[in-house]
Design a protein around this nucleic acid. Structure first.
Lengths: 355, 355
DNA sequence: ATATAAAAATAAATCGATTAAGCTACATTG
DNA sequence: CAATGTAGCTTAATCGATTTATTTTTATAT
């Protein structure tokens, strides 16, 4: 009787101890091995009687038992987690990709551990170590430079890695990218066709593959028409003021410019802010095309011509490739390098002069 | 000799087995208990000789041993992980909060497991279960309605929960919010003072606390001036078209409106798109104020008056409260309800009529 | 009746940590 | 000198699963 009261108190006031596989086994008077086999769908293979299978399944369902995933991971080495490393989760491009990847991952039983690298090599190395330590099953990385060795090690250890947005030329991994060179080449040509002659390219200082390609595309287009490139590379800074300042100086200095191609959505947005401050009219004083497309560009007046990345497709390909790798663990599938096309959304900002 | 060659092969071609605490212990000819105590800073308490402490520390450092966090979590029940549930990580408001929380969390040794709830009760319940299963140490939730019981259970089980953006009135948790009612009241009054008389409130259909408060603020301001409220609540949909459509119909129907307050950044952005399509001029035909502030509003022409949430402060308070709870586990600290002030950023979009 | 095979289930090792409890050797004390 | 204390470590249990190896039971063939 005393015990009964104690029991009630425990049930009512204390944490209800979570069920473990042992509890299930004891309750059903079978061994935990059997329960484990059944729960992992290996009943047939281990020739466990159908009646027992049903009895266990039913009871497990009834009491809502869920295996402890930590213990499971510890034993199996798999964690059903995917590490997602983007440059900055608050950047709309990365945020929307992250969202799409998240959805697909959850649907396939994977959870997302995410982090922002800030393009910082050291930080990224630490984050990779942290992910390793957590036994992340697969890696999705928009890599900064300088992490070649770490990625190489991941691959050597049989861990699937998919890169996106850019890749590391010296590392042979799967990656999903867009055709950066053609994108800016095409955008610049569009400006040239519209009659613009003094076209600048403003971007973040970076030697990452995608940035190099974007700049090359711009250069190629100018060369073709024998124009002189005017390039401004801005050192990235968390504090937007530190971006606005040098860029303002640049535009103040180059009064002869009549058009500009921005290398990223962030740079583009800052550029628009500056044009507002300096009273530079788009497109009358300055035609504008920016990489990446999002609401800011669509709603700007006039709407800004933008190089739209196929965000859904990118996310879709990334997760598909990774899931494929995860499901054929060990067997080294051929390396996928997927290059997607962008879409030049032509709008008012690039057709003021002699459209 | 044969073994030596085999060893080389193993080192070069196969996964280098990760070091475990046993390896360290064996190598140093001490027990793993000792190593564990030393690594966990309990050397003094467990009176372990200073020389041994140094020897172990040095060796561990040298070979770069890092304890397996899964095993650690399994044993201790702590995972150094925080579960972050937002409505939609691709929404700029949530994305920037997530980013700030991430930074602070990492600095304090916590990792973020994140997910988007889509305001879906069932999905959120499942996600909470998943987080529990992963032994997440603390929860940060922008809660949809209907998860009261689940949160209650978390609290009962001693797990810290901090809510933000909104809260569940029936659950006594810590939360960080803004003064929603005053924000829209103040914004609406601003419009009235500017001379606008037919002011609409357009928002997502929701009975969540923050949404109810925002609507009430609008109503209060109108009532004060004896104007009639005109309210349009739009059912949320992933597909933006399904938002644009009913909202377009609304504005087509109410030709007499001269001003509108939007309840969220998303609704506001859609509204601007519609005004573009319908040729409604801001602020000549329609003055605009939107909840939340971000680049779209700043760069719109004319720039849009916005109710700016103190994103940094929100994130800062959320993580501070949660960390405090995590560090005083067990001891029930007093419940914090933090209400922050917003900032009405007055811009061109709300002063066209008789400014 | 006995040997053999197949079916059904289990015992025990394992993953890699933490931690309660215990042991040893030496110093101190009455 | 026996009892007690304590500094310094170690043994072994534990967290909750998976999995290898083994045992028990039943069926079949000789």
């Amino acid at each position: 009787m005393g015990y009964y009261i104690l029991y009630l108190i425990l049930v009512n006031f204390s944490r209800v101890k979570k069920l473990s596989i042992v509890d299930i086994a004891n309750e059903l008077k079978v061994s935990k091995t059997t329960v484990s086999f059944i729960l992992n769908g290996r009943a047939k293979e281990k020739r466990i009687g159908e009646d027992l299978v049903e009895r266990v399944t039913k009871y497990v369902e009834e009491v809502g038992y869920k295996p402890n995933s930590l213990a499971k991971s510890l034993r199996t080495g798999k964690s059903n987690t995917i590490g997602l490393m983007v440059e900055d989760i608050s950047n709309p491009f990365f945020a929307s990709i992250a969202r799409l990847i998240e959805d697909r991952a959850y649907k396939n039983g994977y959870k997302i551990l995410y982090c922002s690298t800030d393009n910082d090599t050291q930080k990224t190395k630490e984050l990779i170590n942290m992910f390793r330590d957590r036994h992340v099953d697969g890696y999705i990385i928009a890599p900064p430079e300088g992490i070649e060795d770490d990625v190489e090690q991941l691959l050597k250890d049989g861990l699937p890695v998919v890169m996106f947005d850019r890749h590391l030329p010296k590392v042979n991994t799967d990656y999903v990218e867009i055709d950066n060179l053609f994108s800016t080449y095409n955008a610049t040509r569009h400006l040239i066709q519209q009659g613009y002659k003094n076209i600048a390219f403003v971007t973040f200082a970076s030697t990452q593959t995608q940035m190099a390609a974007r700049m090359q595309g711009y250069k190629d287009a100018l060369k073709e028409s024998r124009f002189t490139p005017v390039i401004k590379e801005i050192v990235f800074n968390q504090d937007e003021e530190m971006i606005i300042k040098p860029m303002t100086a640049f535009f103040k200095k180059h009064k002869d410019l009549d058009a500009v191609v921005f290398g990223t959505n962030h740079v583009g947005t800052c550029g628009l802010k500056i044009f507002g401050t300096l009273g530079i009219k788009v497109p009358e004083d300055m035609a504008v095309i920016s990489f990446d497309d999002y609401d800011v560009f669509k709603l700007y007046s006039p709407p800004v011509t933008a190089i739209a990345q196929p965000v859904d497709e990118i996310a879709d390909n990334v997760i598909t490739v990774l899931l494929k790798k995860l499901n054929t663990k060990g067997v080294s599938t051929a390396s996928h390098s997927i290059i997607l096309k962008t879409n030049l959304q032509i709008r008012g900002s690039s057709s003021g002069l002699k459209g």
